Amino acid sequence: MATTFIWPFIILQCVTVVVIVLFLRMFLHRQLEIGMGRIKRMDKENLEKEVELNDRLEKLNEEYDMKIQNAEKQADSLINMAKETAKKMRDSERVKAKEEAKRIIASALQEKEKVLSEATRMVNSKAVDFSILILERVFSEDELSGLRHRVTKEVTGVLFGSDNVGELIRKNKDIEVVTADKLTAPDRKYILKMIEKQAKGKVNVKFVVDKSILGGLILKIGGSMIDGGIAYRVNKAVLELREEI
């Protein structure tokens, strides 16, 4: 009887255990599905975030590469600009140096020409003075006066017989006649007559005495000067002799 009573209890216990196991299985399976669903969603979200992060990282890398390229281009541009600026500065300084060298050379040549011209003028002046001294030593004052008078006559004839002088006189009515000695009245009258003949009319003639021309005469017609003085001839002769020597 005791055995008969135990079996139903055992069966009940087994059924209870089976029911509990089934319930637990169903409950755990449900929880497992929920957990797996959560895990899948989390995996999906993580994958999406990973893809998003990878995209952002790729974009950042592209932006970084682009910035690096732009920086390199800007650096190259700045370097080229610096080189070009340096080249222009060198060229400018080179041009300035050449111009300064040309200016210095031109100034030196100009100074040289000035010194040579002054030296030539002094030599010629000394030569003229020496020639005058020789004339004064060789001829007396009366002889020199006669010589000056003859030269003045000759020069007057030559000058007023020139077509070029005649053309100048016709264009300018104001004329200055320079002689070494004061002309006599007949000489003045003769020269005035020659001038009026060339001018084909009346002109304004001014007679001036300048001892430095030594003899002969100088005509100043407008802005032109025709030098027929002895000093000019002596100076010209000195230059010719210097060239021959």
Rank of each mutant, 00 (worst) to 15 (best):
I34M: 06
V205P: 04
V158Q: 10
V208P: 09
F207K: 03
Y232E: 14
K220P: 03
E93P: 07
M26Q: 12
A71T: 10
N204A: 06
E99W: 11
L47T: 10
A119I: 11
E33F: 08
K189R: 11
A119H: 05
K193D: 12
M66K: 13
G229W: 01
I20N: 13
I226Q: 04
I169R: 01
V95T: 08
A199F: 01
L214R: 04
D187N: 06
T152L: 05
S212Y: 01
E111A: 13
T120F: 09
Q110S: 15
A119P: 02
C14S: 08
I105T: 06
L78F: 08
D227T: 03
A231F: 04
A71E: 10
V155S: 02
E84Q: 09
S131C: 11
K96A: 15
D187H: 05
K211A: 08
G228I: 05
V209N: 02
D187G: 03
S131K: 04
E118Y: 08
V123N: 07
K200D: 09
I226Y: 12
D76P: 07
G229V: 02
K220W: 11
L219Q: 00
S131W: 09
K202A: 12
R188N: 03
V123A: 12
V128E: 07
Y64R: 11
K112V: 10
R90Q: 14
Q31K: 08
K153C: 02
L53K: 13
L183S: 00
F130C: 03
L32A: 14
D55T: 12
V234E: 01
S162E: 06
V158I: 14
K200T: 06
V18E: 09
I34F: 10
V209I: 14
H149L: 03
L60W: 14
D76V: 11
M36A: 08
N46F: 10
V205Q: 03
G146Q: 14
R103W: 07
R148M: 02
T85K: 15
V203D: 00
E244M: 08
E240W: 06
I104W: 04
K182F: 10
E111N: 13
I226P: 01
M1L: 07
Q110W: 13
F23L: 15
D43E: 13
I226L: 15
I134G: 07
F5D: 05
A180F: 03
K202Q: 11
L144P: 00
N172S: 05
A119F: 05
I104E: 14
E45W: 05
V18R: 02
A108Q: 15
L32E: 07
S140N: 15
G216E: 00
M36V: 09
